[in-house]
């Protein structure tokens, strides 16, 4: 079995299994904790504000722009760039089609590659910010740095594979697939779970505030 066969087959198989089992385990575990129902009469529509907050938190309120505008735009750009590359690079669509049976139109490599490059630069900036900003220095642990590395690897290997650089394509493709497997395995055990948890977390704040008639 070649490295690529391993990466395409058993590695991806086990990564997907661990990812799914781990993520559902953690999510179910979290969501099954109890919570008391509020007994006071509500002032606003809690549920509506909950859903609104899921969306509204993509943009910070205007009063925060001066302090976090740049960081926020960069972080938003990073997330959008990453999602764009994951979802619209043609070979990726083919990957999802094989797995999910769904497919959608893709974008030319000449667009995807620069986006991937910018995305990687943004991630590097995030890393620099994490090691330099006093608040982030205080908050960051090994897991935070590991997450950045685990997220960067698929981008780096993917770009190199696509450009047929450094190693042979099939080796790079194998490394790319292996790095994705690593990413998938890392999700349930790390803060990468925020890709799902941002939904209930935002929603709850929106509900709590919305119940009191406050816009979250």
């Amino acid at each position: 079995m070649t490295l690529l066969d391993f990466a395409r087959g058993p590695a991806m198989q086990w990564a997907l299994i661990i990812f799914l089992a781990g993520a559902t385990f953690r999510l179910t575990g979290i969501l099954l904790f109890g919570r008391k129902k509020p007994l006071s009469p509500a002032r606003g529509n809690a549920r509506l504000e909950g859903y609104k907050t899921i969306v509204s938190r993509f943009m910070p309120n205007a009063v925060f722009h001066r302090r976090i505008g740049t960081v926020h735009i960069m972080s938003l750009a990073w997330h959008m760039g990453f999602i764009f590359v994951v979802l619209f690079f043609q070979p990726h669509i083919v990957f999802f089609e094989g797995l999910l049976g769904l497919s959608w139109p893709g974008v030319a490599n000449s667009i995807v590659m620069p986006v991937a490059g910018i995305t990687l630069v943004l991630l590097a900036l995030a890393f620099l910010r994490r090691i330099n900003h006093p608040v982030l220095k205080l908050l960051s642990g090994a897991g935070d740095f590991a997450t950045i590395i685990v997220t960067a690897l698929p981008l780096v290997t993917g770009m190199l594979a696509s450009a047929h650089l450094v190693l042979k394509y099939e080796t790079m493709l194998a490394l790319h697939l292996l790095s994705i497997s690593l990413f998938l395995v890392w999700v349930p055990f790390s803060k990468l779970m925020h890709v799902v948890l941002f939904l209930p977390s935002r929603k709850r704040l929106g509900e709590k505030l919305g119940y009191k008639g406050v816009k979250a």
Binding site: R26, G29, I30, L31, L32, F33, G34, R35, K36, P60, I68, V71, H72, S75, H133, V135, L136, L139, S140, G141, D144, K191, M193, H194, L197, F198, P200, S201, R204, K208
Partner: peptide, 17 residues
């Protein structure tokens, strides 16, 4: 600790904002 705290504590990405 309840569902809200569990969700909140697990969701933090340590962005420092």
């Amino acid at each position: 600790a309840n569902r809200d705290t569990a969700i909140n504590l697990e969701a933090c990405v340590r962005c420092g904002l």
